[in-house]
Amino acid sequence: MKKTHVILIILIAVSIGAIFTSLSDSSTYANFTEAFSEPGFEFHVVGKLNRDKETIYDPHADANLFTFFMSDNKGVERKVVLHKSKPQDFEHSEQIVIIGKAVGDAFHANEILMKCPSKYTDGKPEITTTASSN
């Protein structure tokens, strides 16, 4: 057997290994119902901030703790405890992805991704000074 073939076999073996560990490392998107039925397992949950309920961030007490309520895509609402400081511009977020696990009656996240609508998509032009321009 040629040495090139040996290398080729190792190459394929490692590649297959990469695929499989990526699969086992990969997390899953879930809704709250699923995440709470398997507490302690890591999930990505996509949802929206509930603006009617209070968000609590008291940096004087704990700068790394931020609590809010989020509804997942099925409309199920849960309390989310983010173990980080409150993200900039949190209120403007349109969609939130939280990464973490269900513990007790709250979803504890240590990572958050936000999509703010204005950042990447088109807004509408505004004309604010129509009267004064004359």
Partner: peptide
């Protein structure tokens, strides 16, 4: 259907 990137991406 629900595949997501690894939660601990950098470690991965």
């Amino acid at each position: 259907k629900n595949m997501a990137p690894p939660a601990k991406l950098i470690e991965h």
